[in-house]
Design a protein around this nucleic acid. Structure first.
Length: 255
DNA sequence: ATGGCCTCGGTTCGAGGA
């Protein structure tokens, strides 16, 4: 069983790439972020034709999340019941006995800004909600764009990024709070090469220079971490024409 | 030293992303 996450930065623009990637990487579950589509514009027919069921929640211009699944989905929930939010950033569903949570964590813009405060409040509510969810669903996976580089090893230039948004102590503490719930960073369950990232700025030829951050993650509850046999970042789509600035992360679970 | 790109909405620039 393969679970994946990918911030596509507009599903309208990236639908052909999503379909192309699924052809060569037919994962069981793909969580998408930043679809940037209202629900009436969601390309359900094209995705179903590729063999995937879909659950989604979107809004105009910003945010928007979706779960694509080869298997039946039940108990679809939009957003966090503990956090009133007009922004569409979370969708969850149960697939093959696994509670899948697809999340697009707020960016935060700059440390100390209103958007940063919103990010921290949003993450606090996420941890409180998942604490409850884990009691009801011990097999839980939280996949998405966390907009947090958990450690300096996840940053191309830790000195330049020190204390900046995506790397600040409070954001990293929020990530550790999720870990304290028992969730494991699937990527770090395995030996990995240095300097592997999931996002590169469009500017400065950042991708070619590998000036990236690892901010897209798959966190697994203990029963799933025990089943996990690998976790990889697939850099290929970032090399395509007109790419998203993020690239997919994939975790493999033994069945 | 600064900002350098991409997407959207809606016009030819501003907001937001990270």
């Amino acid at each position: 069983m393969k679970l994946a996450t990918w911030n596509v930065n507009s599903l309208k623009v990236r639908l052909p790439q999503v379909l192309q990637w699924l052809e060569s990487s037919p994962v069981d579950v793909l969580c998408l972020q930043e679809t940037k589509l209202t629900d009436d514009k969601f390309p359900m027919a094209e995705i179903e034709a590729a063999g995937y069921q879909v659950a989604f929640t979107g809004q105009k211009t910003y945010n928007g999340v979706a779960i694509l699944s080869r298997h039946p989905m039940t108990d679809v929930v939009k957003n966090n019941p503990l956090f009133e939010d007009e922004q569409q950033r979370i969708i969850s569903a149960t697939i093959e006995g696994i509670r899948i949570v697809c999340a697009y964590v707020p960016n935060g813009q700059a440390v100390g800004s209103d958007k940063y405060d919103y990010k921290l409040r949003w993450l606090d509510a996420l941890a409180r909600w998942l604490s409850d969810e884990l009691k009801a669903a011990p097999a839980l996976a939280l996949l998405g764009d966390y907009n947090i580089a958990p450690a300096d090893a996840d940053v191309h230039d830790p000195a330049a990024w020190a204390g900046q948004v995506l790397c600040s102590d409070a954001e990293r503490a929020a990530f550790e709070r999720l870990v304290a719930l028992g969730l494991k960073d699937a990527f770090r369950l395995f030996a990995q090469a240095d300097k592997l990232y999931s996002w590169w700025d469009y500017r400065q030829m950042a991708f070619r220079r590998n000036m990236g951050l690892r901010i897209d993650h798959i966190l697994l509850s203990p029963p799933l971490a025990a089943r996990c046999t690998g976790c990889e970042i697939d850099k290929l789509p970032r090399k395509w024409e007109q790419p998203s600035d993020h690239t997919p992360v994939v975790a493999t679970l033994a069945t």
